[in-house]
Design a protein around this nucleic acid. Structure first.
Length: 811
RNA sequence: GCGGAUGUGGCGGAAUUGGCAGACGCGCUAGACUUAGGAUCUAGUACUUCGGUGUGGAGGUUCAAGUCCUCUCAUCCGCACCA
């Protein structure tokens, strides 16, 4: 009988659904295991082959954990608010809600066709008011605790469409759709104070098991640095001064000019003193057209304008310094102003060269030091090493190494009241407003009397109003701003007239806590019950893409920590373990994209080869954490393997124990597959299953006990075929109800082994000896074996690494 | 620019972490078989002048290096309003 994957997969998916095989048990006495994958954004394109890489991986692990006796929670849901759906809706004149419904329906059908062991009864959808009610509730808690505030932040504004744009929609300074110029436009926006959690977000990484590169990525993103904030007086102005953050207070004597961001408030406050105000404003509007990324590009030529009419005073030398504006200084980092030390900073150096500003060397590199230590030629390039060199031209710092000078300089500044020690972070607060329709409404009203007031919690959810016209408003406003009936409301505090917030939340909101909802998805009293949270959190294993390292993963950790602080969740960290999968590329090794025509549709693979083949290939394709190109031929190879397994039925003989020739192989394979799954080395786990199958073919027979084990090990990867064959072989239980196979360590070792023999590091032969043979025995055997090669040679040394290798050194 | 990765046959990759480089799969070659199929089975397959040579390149440490050290080249990914 041929391998009829279509019939087999349909049959088992129906059985699993009917019996509720993978529904999570409500038994909290069992040990639990909570595996999580990133829930998909239900786009109109459907799933791509990247999704099942992560989903299959944790499905494999979940299926193994269940059979090891764990109560497993392996849920799925939909992250359904977001920009692409809204844009699609506008373009095709369909309500985003309808689009979302259709997409979710399609995604569900697709996901079910893979045979994933999700507990579908716990499916969540971030656009469901019963779900976003709690997203809004969390926002209110943040607001009540002073972690949500409003401030003016720039948005990308398309001068053509008159709407706000996402960064992704801006292509080299132009609107992706209409090609008009995009400028930065100031807007009042809701912000979340993630920076308040910066220190804990770094420190608590010590308590979790994340891939090292993920921890590193988060630490670098948060960008903690220790330095000093220094106050620079402005000549002729007693109230205004410049506040500067520097990690290198040791170089303060070398600061020869200052640079502030074009957006710096100083330009407005000292407008009357400034003689070239118009020139500065012009430069600022130029800078507004560039992204931060473009502005800080070191390769580009530095630009800038001197602020004429004002001077700053170096607090240590009391010298006058010119003040400039330049776009390489960002208003969002530090204080938006820097002291420039051109001799010891690359960008400052370049800037100084271009504008002919003084360069004063204050650190002498070690190789240039002479007896006097004061011979300073013109610098070819800036010298930036903090660990080597010696301070010069720096008064009381002279003779110190920079590292020591940093502390000395900071202490001095603190003593004299000129500055103070400060920890700074690159991490910025989270811009939480979107001028969009398809997001959670922000449950805040503005009352002229009471200011910003949150809605009463019992009034939630604040349902997104059904509107006809969800096109963006004029001047970058949210579509909701056009809806007077929505905007005008009463203040919950004073009952006076008030206006609703018209911006919505970013997509990140719903995904920052969805894993909590899975544990108790239908609760309408709390976001989840205490008992359920107590039992299920923290998540035991979370797998997802590397691209989420710095945003989703940090945002959700931040929210979780906040919820911990207010007593809602019992753990400090949401995820005990985090791993990441590599991207699946097109067969030409480029990122899959419609325009390149290299997209592989999983539906086609399932249709042509079946879900079992797709799952197997996704796990076999290459090392799990690395990017790998898709290959249609290799997909076929996986199908061929399953077909070979299917045809083992022809060789099947009776036998309740492993046969003698296969015993070691059986135990070795169980060991290898078990440990490889835990380490996510799926590709080699499958390779060992293939090898075992090849052995069965070589012997032209397999007994029931051996086939049973093979099917049990194959089951997590290709569950349908494994279950079907298990049933055919005649077991009354399904594999899903069967414990994971065990191995005997003593039976994984061969009694005779082959030892390679090297002469001067080159393999010249091998000898087969009993395991753990002693060196003397081995030496006799080897010298007999390699008699000819060794005769007349001067043997200098012989090295034996037990059970590994034997090396003879001759001269 | 900042940050994170990766370089091994024709291709995807493996290598017990310093111990026989190329497991497993694809592709290719030859043979067998046949209800001529998307077949299947068996054997072979890094290069080679058969001495050797080979893990992006150049040095080094070691009895022994894909693995450790120094320098260097190339490619890919992320960068805060895509998710």
């Amino acid at each position: 009988m041929a391998y009829d994957y279509k019939q087999i997969e349909k049959k088992w998916q129906e059985i699993w659904e009917r019996k509720g095989t993978f529904y999570t048990k409500n038994d909290t006495t069992l040990p639990k295991w909570y595996g999580l994958v990133e829930f998909p954004y239900p786009s109109a394109h459907g799933l791509h082959v990247g999704h099942p890489r992560s989903y299959t991986a944790l499905d494999v692990i979940a299926r193994k954990k269940r059979r090891e006796g764990y109560n497993v929670l392996y849920p799925i849901g939909f992250d359904a608010f977001g920009l692409p759906t809204e844009n699609y809706a506008i373009k095709n004149k369909i309500h985003p809600k309808i689009v979302t419904e259709q997409n979710i329906e399609n995604f569900t059908k697709q996901l079910k066709s893979f045979g994933f062991s999700f507990d579908w009864s716990r499916c969540v959808d971030t656009t469901d008011p019963n779900y976003y009610k709690w997203t809004q509730w969390i926002f209110i808690q943040l607001f009540k605790h002073g972690l949500a505030y409003k401030t003016t932040m720039p948005i990308n504004f398309c001068t053509g469409c008159k709407v706000g744009l996402a960064n992704e929609e801006v292509v080299s300074g132009e609107c992706e759709r209409c090609g008009s110029e995009v400028v930065q436009k100031e807007k009042s926006q809701w912000m979340l104070k993630i920076t308040e959690y910066a220190e804990r977000l770094i420190n608590d990484l010590d308590e979790v098991d994340y891939l090292e590169k993920i921890k590193l990525g988060q630490k670098n993103w948060i960008g903690r640095s220790e330095g000093a904030e220094v106050k620079f007086e402005i000549k002729g102005s007693s109230e205004e001064h410049l506040q500067v953050y520097t990690t290198r207070p040791d170089t303060l004597f070398g600061a020869t000019y200052m640079v502030v961001a074009p957006e710096h408030s100083l330009i407005e406050t000292l407008k009357d003193n400034i003689t070239n105000y118009n020139e500065l404003v012009e430069y600022r509007s130029q800078a507004a057209r560039k992204s931060d990324f473009e502005r800080t590009e070191i390769a580009k030529e530095k630009t800038g304008v001197e602020i004429k009419g004002i001077k700053a005073i170096n607090p240590l030398t009391n010298e006058e310094m010119s003040v400039w504006i330049s776009d390489y200084v960002l208003i969002t980092y530090g204080t938006g102003a820097i002291m420039a030390v051109p001799a010891h900073d690359e960008r400052d150096f370049e800037f100084a060269k271009k504008f002919g500003l003084p360069i004063k060397q204050v650190i002498l590199p070690p190789n240039e030091q002479n007896e006097t230590g004061d011979v300073l030629g013109p610098l070819e390039e800036p010298y930036v090493d903090v660990h080597n060199g010696i301070m010069v031209n720096s008064d009381f710092l002279n003779g110190l190494v920079p590292n020591v000078a940093i502390k000395a300089a900071t202490d001095f500044l603190e003593e004299k009241g000129l500055g103070y020690k400060k920890v700074n972070y690159k991490l910025r607060d989270w811009i939480f407003s979107r001028q969009r329709y398809w997001g959670e409404p922000i449950p805040i009203v503005h009352c002229d009397k009471c200011g910003y007031v949150h809605l009463p919690e019992e009034s939630l959810p604040l349902v997104l109003p059904e509107i006809e016209d969800f096109e963006p408003g004029e001047n970058g406003e949210s579509p909701l701003a056009k809806l007077d009936s929505w905007i005008n409301t009463t203040c919950p505090t004073c009952s006076g007239p008030a206006k609703r917030e018209t911006d919505t939340m970013p997509q990140w909101a719903g995904s920052s806590w969805y894993f909590l909802r899975y544990v108790d998805p239908d609760n309408d009293k709390e976001l989840a019950s205490k008992e359920a949270l107590e039992y299920w959190t923290a998540i035991d294993w979370y797998n997802g893409g590397m691209e989420h390292t710095t945003l989703h993963l940090l945002y959700s950790r931040f929210w979780h920590k906040f919820l911990y602080d207010i007593g809602v969740v019992p753990t400090k960290e949401p995820y005990s373990k985090r791993t990441a999968h590599g991207m699946i590329l097109g067969s030409n090794s480029e990122k899959m994209s419609k325009s390149k025509g290299n997209v592989v549709n999983p539906d086609d693979i399932i249709n042509d080869y079946g879900a079992d083949t797709l799952r197997l290939y996704e796990m076999f394709i290459g090392p799990f954490d690395q990017a790998t190109p898709w290959s249609m031929d290799s997909t076929k190879g996986c199908f061929k393997f399953l077909d070979r397994v299917w045809n083992l039925q022809e060789f099947l003989i009776d036998g309740n124990t492993y046969s003698e020739e296969l015993e070691v192989s059986m135990h070795k394979t169980i060991k290898k597959v078990s440990s490889d799954i835990e380490e996510m080395k799926f590709n080699t786990a499958i390779a060992s299953l293939m090898s075992l199958t090849n052995e069965f073919y070589r012997l032209k027979r397999v007994n029931k006990a051996e086939l049973q084990t093979l099917l049990q090990l194959l089951n997590p990867f290709s569950p349908h075929i494994a279950e079907e064959m298990y049933e055919i072989v005649g077991y009354d239980k399904t594999i899903a109800e069967t414990p994971w196979p065990v191995y005997d360590e003593s039976k994984t070792i061969d009694s005779m082994i082959e030892i390679p023999v090297q002469i001067n590091g080159r393999v010249k032969g091998t000898v087969t000896v009993a395991l753990d043979s002693d060196e003397a025995t081995l030496k006799t055997v080897i010298h007999e074996e390699l008699k000819e090669l060794l005769s007349g040679q001067n043997i200098v040394k012989e090295i034996y690494v037990k059970n590994k290798i034997y090396n003879i050194v001759i001269k």
